Computed example of a mutant assay.
Amino acid sequence: MKKIIIDCDPGHDDAIAILLAAGNPEIDLLGITTVAGNQTLEKITRNAQSVCAVAGINVPIAKGSSVPLVQKQVVAGDIHGTTGLDGPFLPEPTFDLDSRHAVDFIIDTVMSHEPNTVNLVPIGPLTNIALAMRKEPQIISRVESVIVMGGAYTRGNVSPVAEFNIYVDPEAADAVFSADWPVTMVGLDLTHQALARKELQDRVAAIGGDISTFVLDVWEFVGSTYREVYEFDYPPIHDACCVAALINPNVFTTARAEVKVELRGEYTRGMTVTNFESEP
């Protein structure tokens, strides 16, 4: 069983990732931390609480960073709507937030478990992760793995070369990719192949119940925005791919590469420059 912390900015695909992690017996979800990204911190933290309420998930939720390390905040209202999770009914939270800041929750959790047993799954901007490793560098050697949803080695979705999670806080991403720990970049090149096609939605509909309805409503809303903005027939399930990789490492193929985050380019800021011919 893989112990994980999901660091997220729910977000439709974040919601699916949380449900997958909480519902799979191969995953021990230690907690959820939130970071501003798809919408403002208050909105996405409320969304995380609502997702847990929908599915009866009872794990700590710790609110984290409200702004990027350096640059001005960017949100994705064109994809995720004014709440960050438009479409499904969002129930009232059923429990209070953890009293700790997300950065401290991450540090405390990693340090209180045996080395190489906790996996970090950041599926939003990497602000919290960068701050945690700077505040307590010992977590770098104690974390089993970091599975990042972000980046791309072909093309971006915010600019021609930059993916949203990296683009909105490239300084944080640069710190995380540069640290001496095992990082897996689950980028758009992969997640744009992982779509909530009709066959998948039909399987979810056949289950029935409140969670099924919630998931279908998630895909209906984000499917419509992806058709309008990106001309996709079906919505990608970006963030759930990171959880799936921990459930079954054979779900996709990885390749070793050196990844650098572009911080200064006028047109390339936030690009994940990927060199497949060099060892990291």
Results as ranks from 00 to 15, higher is better:
A175N: 14
I207L: 09
M185W: 01
A172M: 13
E228D: 09
V218L: 11
A130H: 12
N119S: 13
E163Q: 02
A179Q: 14
L190E: 02
E220Y: 06
F232P: 05
R155N: 10
T154C: 03
V146L: 01
V161N: 14
A130Q: 11
L216V: 07
L216M: 08
M185H: 00
H192S: 05
G209C: 04
V183T: 08
A132K: 14
E136T: 03
L126A: 13
G208P: 15
G124M: 13
E231S: 09
I140G: 03
D202I: 08
V215I: 13
Q201K: 09
R142P: 04
D189S: 03
T213Y: 13
N119G: 04
W219T: 08
D233M: 09
V148R: 03
T213N: 15
R227F: 13
V229R: 09
V143Q: 03
D210E: 10
L195S: 04
P235Y: 04
A132Y: 09
I211S: 02
L188F: 00
K198P: 05
I129G: 10
A162V: 07
M133G: 15
V186M: 01
A196Q: 05
S212W: 15
M133V: 12
P125D: 06
T127S: 08
V121A: 11
V168H: 07
G208Y: 08
V186K: 00
G151F: 02
L190R: 01
R197V: 07
T184I: 10
Y230N: 11
Y226H: 15
I139C: 04
V186N: 00
V204T: 03
E228C: 06
V229G: 01
I166E: 06
S141A: 14
T213E: 15
V229A: 07
V161G: 09
A173G: 11
Q201G: 02
I207E: 12
F214R: 07
M149W: 13
T154G: 05
A132H: 13
M133K: 12
I123Y: 02
E171F: 15
A172Y: 05
F177N: 01
W181G: 07
A152K: 00
N119D: 10
A179E: 14
T225Q: 03
E199Y: 01
G156Y: 11
P236N: 06
E231I: 06
E231H: 11
A196T: 04
A175G: 10
G151N: 00
Q138E: 14
F164L: 08
Y167P: 14
D233S: 11
R134M: 10
A205G: 02
F214Y: 13
N157C: 02
Q193C: 14
S178F: 09
T127P: 04
A173I: 00
E163K: 01
L131H: 12
N119L: 05
L200R: 10
A132G: 08
M185G: 00
T154A: 08
P137F: 12
Y153M: 14
L216I: 10
A179G: 10
D180H: 13
I147G: 05
S145V: 00
G187H: 00
Y153S: 15
F214E: 06
P122N: 01
S141P: 01
P236M: 08
V186R: 01
N157G: 00
I140Q: 00
G187Y: 03
L188P: 02
V204H: 03
I123V: 13
P182I: 07
V168E: 09
D217H: 14
R227P: 06
S145K: 03
S145L: 01
D210R: 04
I129M: 13
A152C: 11
P125A: 12
N165W: 07
A194S: 08
Q138P: 04
Q193R: 14
L120Q: 09
